[in-house]
C-alpha cells in the first residue's frame, strides 16, 4: 500500500524531494504537543503579555502618550504591535533552531523520517508549517488580550494576524537553514546574540528616530524592524506602500530560507 501511495507522485514536480506529507508532519506536532511541549508554548504566549504589563503599565505611567508622525497614541498601544511581531519571531526561531537542532542532532528524528517515502522538502515544510501554526495561535491569543484593552487603533489591525504568520514564516525558514550548519548546542547561542540586540534596538519601545543616522540605517536593515513596522502600521491603521515593502522583505526571506533549507537537508541526509 505504501508503494502504491508513493507511485502516485511519480512524474510530479519535485518528486525526488517532496511527497506531499506536510499534514502528517503537523499531525506529529499535535501529538507531541499534547504530551510534552505544551509548557514551552504557554511560556511563549506569556512572554509578550508580561512585557506588555510591565512596560505598558510601568513606563505608561511615566509616559502616558507617544507621538508617531502626526498622531498621539497611548504608550501601550505603541509597544503592543511590536510585542506581537517579536513574539511571532521568537516562536518561529525557537521552533526552527532549538527544536530542529535537537531533532536533527540529538534525537536524530529526521533520519528516521527520511528513511520513509518522505523527502527533505516535506520535512522542511512540515517543521516550518508547525512554526507557523504556533505563530498564528500566538498572534490570535495576543490579539485577544490587546484588542479588548483598546490597544488596537484600527480595524486594519485584524491583518496583523496574517502579518504575524508571514513574519514567522520568514524567520522559521531562515532559522532552519542556519540551524543546519550548527554543530553544537553552544553554537545556538549565536542566534540569541543576534536576536536580543535586534529586539532591543528595533523600535519596540521607542521610535528609532531617536538614534543617530548611521544606527538608524543599520537598524532598518534588520528583519525585526520591518516586522514591527508592518504590524504597527496595520494596528494603527497607517496603510501605505511602505507596508508592502516590509511584507516583501519577508517574502524574500521565505524563498531564500526554503531553498537553502532543502539544499542543506539534502546534503545532510543524502550524503
Amino acid at each position: 500500500m505504501a508503494v502504491a501511495i508513493a507511485e502516485k507522485r511519480v512524474g510530479k514536480l519535485g518528486e525526488r524531494v517532496y511527497s506531499g506529507r506536510v499534514p502528517q508532519l503537523l499531525e506529529r506536532g499535535f501529538i507531541a504537543f499534547k504530551s510534552s511541549t505544551y509548557m514551552i508554548v504557554i511560556s511563549g504566549f506569556l512572554e509578550p503579555v508580561l512585557y506588555l504589563l510591565s512596560f505598558g503599565y510601568g513606563i505608561g505611567k511615566l509616559l502616558p502618550t507617544i507621538t508617531v508622525g502626526s498622531e498621539t497614541i497611548k504608550y501601550a498601544a505603541f509597544i503592543a504591535p511590536a510585542l506581537l511581531a517579536t513574539s511571532a519571531m521568537n516562536g518561529a526561531i525557537y521552533d526552527s533552531t532549538m527544536n530542529v537542532f535537537f531533532k536533527l542532532n540529538h534525537d536524530r528524528i529526521y533520519h528516521g523520517m527520511l528513511a520513509t517515502s518522505m523527502g527533505p522538502l516535506d520535512v522542511a515544510l512540515g517543521e516550518i508549517g508547525w512554526a507557523l501554526l504556533r505563530g498564528f495561535s500566538y498572534a490570535c491569543a495576543f490579539m485577544a488580550v490587546i484588542a479588548p484593552l483598546g490597544l488596537v487603533e484600527s480595524v486594519w489591525g485584524l491583518l496583523a494576524i496574517p502579518a504575524a504568520v508571514l513574519i514567522a514564516f520568514g524567520f522559521a525558514s531562515c532559522g532552519m537553514a542556519v540551524t543546519s550548519y550548527m554543530k553544537s548546542f553552544q553554537q545556538l547561542e549565536i542566534v540569541n546574540m543576534f536576536l536580543l540586540p535586534m529586539f532591543l534596538f528595533s523600535g519596540s519601545f521607542y521610535p528609532i528616530s531617536v538614534f543617530p543616522q548611521w544606527l538608524q540605517f543599520t537598524v532598518n536593515l534588520m528583519p525585526l524592524t520591518h516586522a514591527i513596522n508592518l504590524v504597527r502600521g496595520l494596528c494603527l491603521g497607517h496603510i501605505n506602500m511602505a507596508l508592502l515593502g516590509h511584507a516583501l522583505y519577508f517574502v524574500v526571506m521565505i524563498v531564500f530560507g526554503l531553498i537553502f533549507t532543502t539544499k542543506r537537508l539534502n546534503a545532510l541526509f543524502m550524503k
Binding site: 507511485e7 501529538i31 536524530r108 528516521g112 528513511a115
Partner: peptide, 27 residues
C-alpha cells in the same frame, strides 16, 4: 532517481536508534 518510491518498499532499522523521544511507544 526514485528515492521516495524505493523507500516505500523498505523497512529500515538503523544502527543508532532514532525513535521519537517526545512520543509514546504506540504513537
Amino acid at each position: 532517481l526514485h528515492g521516495p518510491q524505493i523507500r516505500a518498499h523498505l523497512g529500515v532499522v538503523p544502527q543508532q536508534d532514532n525513535l521519537d523521544m517526545q512520543l509514546s511507544v504506540a504513537e
